[in-house]
């Protein structure tokens, strides 16, 4: 075999999850920020700024889950039962906030209820995703190709902290998205929220970085010894640069700069987690090679993926292009 198929697929799945995090991150973020904007007009604009794209954003989550089943079935079979509660809560939360996109335009009387559904659903989904990340980082118990822990193992101070961190991070993505996509008082308010959320996100990343190495000795090793240690020096510098980009963009524009800076923060954090995991897919328990389906499965799906993923990126970009520019209240799609 010339190609290391499991490795290629690990990279593709990692890309799918990252795409999910940043894309659904900003539309979940809009939901998280909902309580800070009380005026119906503002909320209509916020919702409309993501209405044409949220569906595609969430599809990356299905690719992450479905892809894991396809190419790393063992990892899927271990992770899902281990994260049973947070995943089911996340799914239920996604239901509420997903249908809110359509329902809230179909009623006057119950509109406030679907506003709550959108806000709570988005926040809970983000929180559960953060918990899932934390639980995965701190490690899960595997015996005989199966999860061997209890159904509350995921709940620790560390996972609660990562849950909160992700809510703040998505809030930043949402706020900077609003800076980019809206104008007037709404954009001004989003600007000041972005500033606070940017510092919040940096603080959360700092706490996460200091805490993680002490959850497992392997991380400590990874972070401070060997070639990957260089990353531990570079990342803080790059994080600082991203912060400057965000702050500069907020002050002087252009309006898409803060969003790009926030994306940068997510990519950096994500890369750090990826380096800490490698070569495991379930930290300390299952490696990429262990979990991989046979090459015949990986090759079959890869043949389609190399054609379809660029196509998907192309028409997704097209869809964003169609709905480019500032969204105003008169733009109401509904």
């Amino acid at each position: 075999m010339v190609l290391d198929l499991p490795f290629i697929w690990a990279a593709l799945i990692a890309f799918a999850v990252l795409a999910y995090v940043v894309l659904d991150g900003f539309d979940l973020g809009i939901g998280i920020l909902f309580p800070l904007f009380r005026a119906k007009q503002d909320r209509d604009v916020m919702m409309n700024s993501v209405a044409p794209v949220w569906d595609g954003n969430e599809t990356w989550l299905v690719l992450g889950g479905g892809g894991l089943l396809a190419v790393f079935p063992l990892a899927y079979a271990v992770i899902m039962p281990a994260l049973y509660m947070p995943i089911i809560l996340m799914l239920l939360a996604l239901i509420f906030r997903g249908v809110a996109f359509e329902y809230r335009w179909r009623t006057r009387r119950a509109e406030f209820l679907w506003d709550y559904a959108f806000n709570w659903g988005s926040t809970l989904a983000a929180f559960c995703q953060g918990i899932a990340l934390g639980a995965l980082v701190q490690g899960i118990k595997v015996e005989n190709r199966a999860y061997a822990g209890g159904w509350w193992d995921w709940l620790t101070p560390f996972s609660i902290a990562t849950g909160l961190a992700l809510v703040i991070g998505y809030g930043l993505l949402g706020a900077t998205w609003l800076v980019m996509k809206t104008e007037g008082a709404l954009a001004e308010k989003a600007r000041s929220i972005s500033r606070i959320a940017a510092f919040g996100t940096i603080a959360a990343m700092g706490v996460f970085s200091l805490w993680t190495p002490f959850t497992r000795p392997l991380y400590l090793e990874r972070w401070f010894h060997g070639p990957s240690a260089a990353f531990s020096v570079i990342v803080p510098v790059l994080v600082f640069l991203c912060l400057l980009v965000i702050l500069r963009g907020l002050k002087r524009g252009p309006d898409h700069l803060p969003f790009l800076g926030a994306l940068g923060l997510f990519v950096l954090g994500y890369a750090g987690i990826g380096i800490s995991f490698y070569p495991y897919i379930v930290p300390h328990a299952v490696t990429i090679a262990d979990a991989a389906a046979p090459d015949k499965s990986l090759g079959f799906l890869l043949a389609g993926a190399v054609v379809l993923i660029p196509l998907i990126l192309a028409y997704t970009a097209y869809s964003y292009w169609v709905f480019r520019g500032k969204v105003t209240h008169e733009d109401g799609y509904h």
Partner: peptide
């Protein structure tokens, strides 16, 4: 999932790549 994943997983992967994204996009 562990046992059937290598066979049915790629088919579902194709469903996501060729159908879900197309619809949502």
């Amino acid at each position: 999932s562990d046992k059937a994943g290598p066979v049915i997983g790629p088919l579902m992967g194709y469903e996501v790549l060729s159908a879900f994204f197309l619809e949502a996009g």
